[in-house]
Design a binder for these strands. Structure first.
Length: 111
DNA sequence: CAGTTGACAGTCC
DNA sequence: GGGACTGCCAACT
């Protein structure tokens, strides 16, 4: 039986599957995604996103600091606002991009 | 084959 | 609260 639930997924394939399983309005940290894969390579996850993350909601994957990937703060912000993701920024933010996701509420864990 | 890099995380100061 | 150092894993050169 074509177990599409367990294909010979590469590390990147597994990452894309988990990221694609994140519902709107929710986010996961790279460490959480790596943990689901049984790996601690949080960096490896981020690297996969940069290579093949073009086909997955990469903006739903953020750092443990609650901040989106470097160089894409604007792109991610637009998606967060569109999906209603709980954001939180310092009242004395240095810039319009100095915001953080409220992981306390937005952090989501797969089944 | 070995070294370096990279959309990171956690701990210490 | 913010900054710096180290540790981990996978892919590229």
């Amino acid at each position: 039986m074509p177990a599409a639930s367990e294909p010979p997924l590469d590390f990147g394939g597994a990452v894309l599957m988990v990221v694609d399983g994140i519902p709107p309005g929710r986010v996961m940290t790279y460490g959480d995604v790596a943990a689901e894969l049984g790996s601690r390579g949080a960096r490896a996850v981020g690297r996969v996103m940069s290579t093949e993350g073009s086909g997955v909601p990469w903006w739903r994957v953020v750092r443990a600091d609650g901040r989106p990937p470097s160089g894409h703060e604007v792109e991610a912000l637009e998606h967060y606002r569109a999906e209603g993701t709980p954001l939180r920024w310092a009242g004395d933010a240095r810039g319009p991009l100095d915001y953080r996701l409220e992981l306390a509420t937005a952090r989501w864990a797969p089944a």
